[in-house]
């Protein structure tokens, strides 16, 4: 668990004059699960988008296994294959069946044998409880089912690291669990993940390390028990308080 696979150094992201990320640095080691927390609009999602070069960056560097990641990288598609991403809005391809959604990239991009990927896809679908949905189309699935398919689709590319961008934020509460259980299982297997979420108890259960971002900077980081029980900064305390309710009776 010591090998650094993703390294972010002094990352700066601006939209015109608006600085979103202002000098973010951290390392991700193999098998590590990092949860990124912070108030909305603090740049968490932008951070994930920068990590697989969906956003050009204005300063700093990102390295994946020593290779520089930026939107001008020579082997950008090769790099992106090693970085899986799951979006808040699932983004399954609506014109393809569940199985084809999963197979398209491994078969067309990685040029793997269709039968081999199919066997793997079915096994993964089985594990997330959706094997019988292999021939369904996205519009026939619930939000939770779509998101589980999106996770399988990312996993089938065998990425080095998985980026999960508020993957339960668009789900009905009773569907959140079925998706998070899948992610918890991935963590047990030692999958390297970077997770943006607002589910604090999930964050606490899954994280090896919490990064708390505000104002474009990492304000506080540490083990989940420390961060949640003894936040050091006023900003983090204030953030955590917004999740608590006092009884009005």
């Amino acid at each position: 668990m010591d090998e650094v696979i993703l390294s972010v150094k002094n990352l700066v992201k601006r939209f015109d004059d608006n600085t979103i990320l202002n000098g973010i640095s951290f390392d991700v080691r193999r098998g590590e699960v990092i949860v990124v927390l912070g108030p909305s609009g603090c740049g968490k999602s932008t951070l994930l988008r920068c990590l697989n070069a969906l956003e050009p960056i204005q300063g700093g560097e990102i390295f994946l296994n020593g290779q520089a990641v930026d939107s001008a990288a020579k082997d950008l598609t090769g790099l992106r294959q090693q970085i899986g991403m799951v979006f808040q809005s699932y983004e399954l391809f609506p014109h393809m069946s569940v199985l084809n959604n999963i197979l398209i990239a491994p078969v067309q991009v990685q040029k793997r044998q269709r039968e081999e990927v199919r066997a793997e896809a079915l096994q993964l679908l089985e594990r997330v409880g959706l094997r019988e949905k292999q021939n369904s189309f996205p519009r026939e699935l619930s939000g939770g089912q779509k998101q589980r398919v999106a996770i399988v689709r990312a996993l089938c590319m065998h990425p080095e690291v998985l980026l999960l961008d508020e993957i339960t934020a668009a789900l009905d509460p009773e569907m959140v669990r079925e998706v998070l259980d899948v992610v918890l299982n991935l963590a047990r297997e030692g999958k390297t993940m970077l997770i943006v979420t607002h589910e604090l108890s999930f964050a606490r259960a899954i994280a090896d390390r919490v990064l708390f971002i505000d104002g474009g900077k990492i304000v506080e980081q540490g083990k989940p028990a420390d961060f949640f029980d003894h936040p050091q900064t006023e900003r983090a305390k204030q953030f955590l308080r917004t999740f608590e309710y006092e009884s009005v009776k």
């Binding site: 969906l54 598609t77 294959q81 991403m85 391809f93 067309q108």
Partner: peptide, 11 residues
């Protein structure tokens, strides 16, 4: 975002 998803899959 559909294209971005495709790019994120290495396309």
């Amino acid at each position: 975002i559909q294209s971005e998803t495709a790019y994120a899959l290495g396309m």
